[in-house]
Design a protein around this nucleic acid. Sequence first.
DNA 1: TCCAGTAGTTTCTAATTGGATACTATGAAA
DNA 2: TTTCATAGTATCCAATTAGAAACTACTGGA
Lengths: 118, 118
Amino acid sequence: MKDCTIYKTVDIIGKKWSLCILLELYKGEQKQKRFNELKARLQDVTPKTLSLRLKELEEQGFIRKTIDNSSVPIKCEYSLTESGEEFLDIIQNIKKWGLKWKFGNDECERSNCKLCQL
Amino acid sequence: MKDCTIYKTVDIIGKKWSLCILLELYKGEQKQKRFNELKARLQDVTPKTLSLRLKELEEQGFIRKTIDNSSVPIKCEYSLTESGEEFLDIIQNIKKWGLKWKFGNDECERSNCKLCQL
DNA sequence: TCCAGTAGTTTCTAATTGGATACTATGAAA
DNA sequence: TTTCATAGTATCCAATTAGAAACTACTGGA
């Protein structure tokens, strides 16, 4: 059972901030986002946790990190890979499900989600 | 951010056996399944963990528990609710994603998943 | 020289989660 | 009376995960 695809995929993206990070990278015009930018948007995340999750997501191929050392200070930019973008369909369905069955639309209206474009 | 629908839904179903339990309840002809039956099918789960997850899933409305005390010993049967069934679309998409991007089809062929009808 | 902004890391602690193992209670059957 | 099957609990411990707070290293600019 532990070699079940579902089981293994949940191990990768079941952690507290993983899906929110992917969602945050999807939002807005600008698809490249910097560390401090993500930290500011995901209000309650600590730099330690954000750093760990970004590393994991990169290792697992959901996101890529590009380092722009043309200017100073160095800027690191994170963006979705192709597989990460495809995973957003799932996140979208989770949101739809959550809104339908668990949390009223109004909750989402009041929260940051109104900006999430899903 | 913590009132984000995604964040909250992951809190509910991000735990280790939750999705596998839902999947197990979906499989097969017989939609009602008993505790020991689930324990046997989800090979590595301990009764404690299974018990906790079933309670959570019931509280959250994914599954329902019906007690058949007509015969002895009492039989408890678990089955998906309507919202639980709808969540299986998401699980199916997670599986598709996992097979496409992370784990070869062959892995799933070798595992119990070949029986999962997703 | 000191501050600001970049992107994190370090340390310590707390909370959550999961596993191993043994145990409970019920009633029927051998 | 012991055993079996039902459906779990209880206890203890280990591992994982998350958070708070402070700190690092780099360089440019005031």
